[in-house]
Simulated assay, not measured.
Amino acid sequence: MKNPTIEKETRMYLFDLTNTALENGFKADDSWELVLGTEAQKTKIQKDYYPAVTAKIFGEIALPVYYTIKSRLHQPLNTIEQGLDVKTVLKDHLNYVIAYNPKRQRR
């Protein structure tokens, strides 16, 4: 059985991504770059890119939520992401799922 909390967080985040893309006129070739990061990374990405969609995900569900979002966006995991575990996520304070479009830098 799927974890309802993971499913809920995933659905809410994907809903926000879809709405933000529509509100900002994303074209078919526009895509989201997804990061599981710290508060400092979130702040830097929000400063450098617009729009950026962030969500704070707590504790042990951060990694499964991130993996589920990546999967639903049909984005493969890179080598670093494949090596992550819950212990590392908690130790390194990787509490934020952050999405941004690399083609949309702030000027």
Rank of each mutant, 00 (worst) to 15 (best):
K8W: 13
K8S: 14
E9P: 04
T10N: 02
R11E: 08
R11L: 13
Y13W: 00
Y13C: 04
Y13I: 10
Y13S: 04
F15V: 15
D16K: 01
D16Y: 02
D16H: 01
D16W: 01
L17H: 01
L17S: 09
L17A: 08
T18E: 07
T18D: 08
N19H: 03
A21I: 12
A21K: 07
L22V: 05
E23K: 05
E23L: 08
E23G: 05
G25C: 12
G25L: 08
F26P: 08
K27Q: 09
K27N: 07
D29H: 02
D30W: 00
D30V: 01
D30I: 03
W32D: 07
W32E: 07
E33M: 06
V35H: 15
L36H: 12
L36P: 06
G37Q: 09
T38K: 11
T38V: 14
E39H: 15
E39T: 15
Q41L: 00
K42G: 04
T43P: 00
I45N: 06
Q46E: 12
Y49G: 10
P51I: 02
A52E: 03
A52G: 02
V53A: 01
V53G: 03
T54A: 04
T54L: 00
K56A: 02
E60R: 15
I61Q: 05
I61G: 04
I61F: 01
A62D: 05
A62G: 10
P64I: 07
Y67F: 05
T68Q: 05
L73D: 11
L73M: 14
H74S: 14
H74T: 15
P76S: 10
P76W: 04
P76M: 11
L77M: 14
N78Y: 08
T79M: 05
T79S: 06
E81Q: 09
Q82N: 08
Q82M: 14
L84P: 05
D85S: 13
D85G: 12
V86F: 00
V86C: 11
K87T: 15
T88K: 13
T88E: 12
V89C: 02
L90Y: 02
L90D: 07
K91W: 12
L94I: 02
L94G: 03
N95R: 12
N95F: 12
N95T: 14
